[in-house]
Design a protein around this nucleic acid. Sequence first.
DNA 1: CCCAATCAAGTTGTACACAACTTAGTTGTG
DNA 2: CACAACTAAGTTGTGTACAACTTGATTGGG
Lengths: 162, 162
Amino acid sequence: MTTTPGDRPDLPTVPDAELLRLDHQVCFSLHAASRAFGGFYRQALKDLGLTYSQYLVMLVLWEHGPQPVKAIGERLYLDSGTLSPLLKRLEAAGLVRRERSREDERSVLIEPTGEGADLRDRALAVPRSVLAATGLSVEEVLGLQDVLRRLTTALGETADAA
Amino acid sequence: MTTTPGDRPDLPTVPDAELLRLDHQVCFSLHAASRAFGGFYRQALKDLGLTYSQYLVMLVLWEHGPQPVKAIGERLYLDSGTLSPLLKRLEAAGLVRRERSREDERSVLIEPTGEGADLRDRALAVPRSVLAATGLSVEEVLGLQDVLRRLTTALGETADAA
DNA sequence: CCCAATCAAGTTGTACACAACTTAGTTGTG
DNA sequence: CACAACTAAGTTGTGTACAACTTGATTGGG
């Protein structure tokens, strides 16, 4: 016990109840903020006919062009169990095409349709309203992202270790 | 590029692509961090037989005692659509009792069983390992929480407005 | 007193997320 | 060449989230 994360020699004597409360607040405030974001995006994306996760996939396609399911999954940290049905829904909505690769028959290439590509212009309104809605300064946003990325990396590594 | 974030008067001229990318990173890094946390908790809670959300409910019950579904929902920002099935699973696991209130027959009181109360001691190990796994200093954790809480509030308010 | 509005839970339907598994295609090595 | 190991998608099952709705209880205004 008495885990000392780095820079202070005197934080060991944190009582159980405090630790529990601190922990509760970290994981929970993150969870709550993520869901609040989800709620905002649900509104903002409603007339584009996209869910938040579908929007993330379209962002990847708009930014990096056609690519296999695997590559999309690596960018978004999602596996085929999540992406396969999601991509089928995007296909059913007429926004992407799914095409089995000739070079490697295991791979399926995802590419935006004309309609999917056109959607990008309308999607530009979304980030503007989101940025305004956060009420955060740009410095805070950048700082937040830095902490979150380190957190994601650290948690990912310990998960691998376990 | 005109990458002058924040404190200058000339930030309006942020090009579309930048805005889109910034936005992508905020919502996505939050989403990714939240899911990384989820993965870590999945491991840490496995031998307690709890999911992350069930753990949050138990935290509320351990900290504030027996209370109606409504109150739990207000603390965790969850509605009955999420809580009702979750609480049934906790009941089936023998960790809580659900009892219709006599004063107000609409309300259902949730209270930990003996087994549910006992689980608290074993759960104390979880926050220790989580705190260690984050790799963050206490200052960073507190700063993070502050930003996240303001973010949640701000996004919640604009959602109400819409 | 009565009934419309409100309220707490629960239900239904959709969409992630993810573990565990299956299927089919590819690759490296003996 | 053969075949085991690996890989990419997809499938299945469980568990959140959340909108929209239903049910039954409570309450406030006329």
